[in-house]
């Protein structure tokens, strides 16, 4: 079946099977490298994207369900090839090592800050709780989110 959706602002049309996950379509059919397969069961957050500005595990989302919707990946946060202020805070705080969790972490942080521009520590922990990181020990990630938040 053909579906169409806005991927990072651009309209894409793609032929999918009813059982294809959004993750499979983004990675295998559209060639995205920033959306990562971690566990395939919604436990790690490496595959997270925004669907109509809401966080979704793309591994648990049917591709067909995003028809006519807006899908945002971490690459969609750039403007004119320039990193967003939030992404720059991740760089400054060395909040990525291997980088596998980073796109998910950035999108979770964006979703949090869009809704709540000055979150408490607890609210940041709660927001990041569904995303696993093996390298950083989370401290630099939390610092990056805090420094991107409105004081």
């Amino acid at each position: 079946m053909m579906i169409r959706f806005y991927l990072d602002g651009q309209l894409v049309e793609v032929d999918v099977k009813p059982t294809d996950t959004l993750l499979k379509v983004l990675v295998d059919k559209l060639g995205l490298t920033s959306v990562h397969y971690g566990c395939g069961e919604g436990s790690c957050g490496a595959c997270m994207v925004l669907v109509d500005d809401k966080l979704r595990y793309s591994c648990l989302t049917f591709a067909a369900s995003v028809n006519d919707k807006k899908v945002t990946t971490v690459a969609g946060l750039l403007s004119d090839h320039e990193l967003s202020p939030l992404q720059k805070k991740f760089v400054e705080n060395n909040a990525a090592q291997c980088g596998y969790c980073t796109p998910g972490m950035v999108l979770v942080a964006k979703a949090l800050l869009d809704k709540n521009p000055s979150p408490s520590d607890e609210e940041i922990f709660d927001a990041l709780a569904g995303n696993l990181c093996r390298c950083t020990g989370y401290v630099p990630i939390v610092k990056a989110v805090k420094s991107a938040a409105r004081r």
Binding site: C39, S43, C44, I124, L128, Y138, V139, I141, V142
Partner: peptide, 12 residues
């Protein structure tokens, strides 16, 4: 990862 429990941001 539901059984193999890694620390998450709030556990630090």
């Amino acid at each position: 990862f539901r059984d193999y429990v890694l620390p998450t941001a709030g556990d630090i």
